[in-house]
């Protein structure tokens, strides 16, 4: 289910950048720094590697049970997908 801005900010702030979600992800084809992913989820233009990852994420949810803090990377990725869909200015 999608997140609204406050929930997304809350989760991004709580993220301890351990990258466990990325290790468990079957869609991640190239290395992505988790801090860059967190930053670009909310701010600024999307870099090509993160945009590609957002396109490839297929919302399987494998990233959720492995998160030690109980965050929902799948919902954060859905947010990124909405940003991709709405274009670079969103």
């Amino acid at each position: 289910m999608h997140y609204a801005t406050p929930q997304l900010m809350e989760e991004l702030t709580a993220c301890i950048a351990c990258s466990e979600c990325l290790l468990a992800c079957p869609a991640l084809a190239e290395a992505i720094p988790i801090k860059a992913l967190n930053w670009e989820t909310l701010h600024g233009p999307l870099s090509p590697d993160i945009a590609r990852f957002a396109q490839r994420c297929y919302q399987c949810g494998a990233c959720v049970p492995v998160c030690p803090v109980g965050l929902h990377r799948d919902a954060m990725m859905l947010w990124l997908k909405v940003r991709l869909l709405l274009g670079p200015d969103s």
Partner: peptide, 14 residues
């Protein structure tokens, strides 16, 4: 999180 992205914007869409 104060990183500023100097990378070019992507027009990839979805």
């Amino acid at each position: 999180m104060t990183r500023t992205s100097a990378r070019p914007p992507i027009q990839a869409g979805y």
